[in-house]
């Protein structure tokens, strides 16, 4: 539908307007306004407990927004159940990776490929491309996913999200608990993914990771977006980094 619009900047793929989320008695998101531009990698940064994971879970429908509106590709998805949101074209890599540890790597991938009844139905070229990004998956193809190392599990989690083309990936802290060399591996994989017309919203704590990958950035604190702009801008401005990320108190003043 957006193809007909004038050639300014294309409308964002995902829009959050004044989103509030409560978990039990706790009010976690206090009106999040977030734009995720089409075809870009948007970093969502912020200190622990700022509401980054809650934002992703709310987009995915795993927690219901109590107020506000979430629009994906022009459709309102605020009240939709999670499976419908997934069908709209959003893939989610949760913080705990959500690996089915009793199933093999192959079976994990097969489940992620909704259109495939058997593993042979998955586009071989795409599978080979994924194996190129994460060779360990090919090596451990028939192993239970629970036996993989932390880094390999993270690779599987990302591979599952991209086994079929999806419009938007939500990835929660892919660098968490990984060794530096594996983080570098992840960074190259995401760089390659960026070349494939996939929009990505990535939550991170690791600023180095964010600096290398992000096109645009949003910084959260206390359940709100307190800064948004180009990643390069934030990466160059150390005062701003200090203000937004270094000293969380600064954001309150």
């Amino acid at each position: 539908m957006s193809a007909q619009l004038p050639a300014q900047s294309p409308p964002p793929l995902l829009t959050l307007e004044g989103v509030h989320t409560h978990i039990g008695a706790y009010h976690i998101l206090h009106g999040v306004d977030l734009l995720v531009p089409r075809g870009e990698l948007t970093m969502l940064l912020g200190r622990n407990g700022a509401g980054k994971t809650t934002t992703l879970r709310t987009i995915m429908g795993l927690w219901q927004a109590s107020q506000g509106r979430i629009a994906f590709d022009g459709q309102d998805i605020t009240k939709r159940p999670t499976p419908q949101i997934a069908h709209a074209g959003i893939a989610y890599v949760p913080e705990n990776m959500g690996i089915f540890s009793d199933l093999t790597v192959r079976e994990n991938m097969l489940l992620a490929a909704r259109a495939a009844r058997h593993i042979e139905d998955i586009d071989t070229k795409r599978l080979d491309w994924i194996f190129g990004l994460f060779p360990a998956l090919k090596k451990f193809w028939l192993h239970p996913a629970g036996l993989l190392s932390g880094g390999q599990k993270q690779m599987l989690a990302v591979a599952r999200a991209i086994v079929e083309p999806r419009a938007l990936l939500l990835v929660d802290e892919p660098s968490k608990g990984l060794a530096p060399s594996i983080i570098q591996n992840m960074i190259s994989a995401f760089k390659e993914l960026k070349g494939t017309n996939t929009t990505i919203l990535l939550v991170e704590q690791n600023f180095n990771f964010a600096r290398q990958l992000g096109d645009s950035v949003a910084v959260m604190d206390d359940g709100r977006i307190v800064h948004s702009g180009a990643m390069a801008e934030l990466a160059e401005n150390e005062d701003l980094q200090q203000k937004l990320l270094g000293l969380s108190l600064a954001a309150h003043q």
Binding site: P94, G98, L103
Partner: peptide, 17 residues
């Protein structure tokens, strides 16, 4: 079998549990 382990993830993959 996946649902036995992680219901939420099965839903996130787009299946109506």
């Amino acid at each position: 079998r996946a649902g036995v382990q992680d219901r939420e993830m099965v839903e996130s993959l787009g299946y109506r549990i």
